[in-house]
Design a binder for these strands. Structure first.
Lengths: 93, 93
DNA sequence: TAGTATAGTTTATATCATAAACTTGTTTAT
DNA sequence: ATAAACAAGTTTATGATATAAACTATACTA
């Protein structure tokens, strides 16, 4: 009756990050931090997990002299997000 | 931008329980267990938490000779559930 | 009356989310 | 030139959570 919710997405911050990333081409660490209101530490950890799951790609570069981490959603991430939303709707409708 | 998700409801099992309870007048432990597929232990703990939060009431009685625990959603629970759903939609739409 | 089933509760554990502290390097003020 | 403050993260520690396993108590069944 109730489908299993992907535990990787069933996390407030990871869900917020994915929610942002599905809507844009890419987003950097600072932007994600501002939009989500998360602490750096928390964001760092959750980005790692999404990357480890293959839901996003993470590229480290520089903007001028400052480090810059850019995140992008993958096809697998898109799919997982859609699946999560679909599953969730079974709970809330 | 992203509203806070009520941590009491942002739990797969508690959400499933609440999802069932919003739709019915009342439900007993056994029914909830079958519908959710949860273990007794987990269900017992999560019901306690929902009760402690005032989201449900729990009545213990007997059906014939066997113990029977009946759960019912409260007005506060209804409200919290609706609020959660509304907040969640900001993430997934 | 011995064994199995029912209806849970309690306890233990492993995982998780989060915050706090730390690192590395940059910019700004003195 | 040096110290203080800021930027962009990472690592570590801690407290909460979900879950499973073990347990209790009673009821039914062979």
């Amino acid at each position: 009756m109730f489908p299993k919710l992907d535990p990787l997405l069933h996390s407030e911050l990871r869900l917020a990050v994915m929610s942002i990333l599905v809507g844009v081409d890419e987003a950097d660490f600072t932007y994600l931090k501002k939009q989500t209101g998360a602490t750096s530490g928390n964001l760092s950890v959750q980005i790692d997990k999404l990357m480890a799951a293959g839901y996003i790609t993470v590229e480290k570069g520089f903007k001028g002299k400052m480090p810059r981490t850019t995140c992008k959603i993958t096809a697998a991430g898109q799919e997982a997000f859609e699946g999560y939303v679909k599953a969730l709707k079974e709970y809330i409708s």
